[in-house]
Amino acid sequence: MNVTPYIFWFLSVWALFSALMMVTSRNPVYSVLWLISTFFAISGHYILLNAQFLAVVNIIVYAGAIMVLFLFVIMLMNLNKETEPQKNRWLKLVGALAGGCLLLVLVAALKDAELKSQQAMVGAGSIGLIKVLGKELFTRYVVPFEISSLLFLSAMVGAAVIGKKEITHQNS
């Protein structure tokens, strides 16, 4: 008996349910918590594919660091139902339109994808392990890797510059 399909369905239902709850929750703090739950479900999917590094890093970076900052901001802003700004009806319409466009693009991109030859290996393969991943990143993909790290550096410098500006403004 193989339990992998059951785990897959469980994780999929979990991820979709959490994602739906994240979007539909009234309380923004609940939204953040549901999003964290979604990240955990996705990490479970990574583990099913034996991409252990991706799974753990997803939890450390997204669930453990980025969402903490989200939660910080939302908790301090103290958003309540009473203070929730009234949303413009046109804004909602435009949002739905934009979401529909994204769906269209995704469907169009995936329509011709060959599912049979691209099927993922479940619980097998070593591509997700840190040794293989590191070698690939630093040999074959070293240039894109370095470029993306430059991108991060520029974002960091930008954040530092914006933060500094605030301080000098207050002092003057």
Partner: peptide
């Protein structure tokens, strides 16, 4: 697990 100590870090960060 192959990730060993990173798992500890993941849980601590949560």
């Amino acid at each position: 697990v192959d990730m060993g100590i990173l798992v500890v870090f993941g849980i601590v960060s949560v």
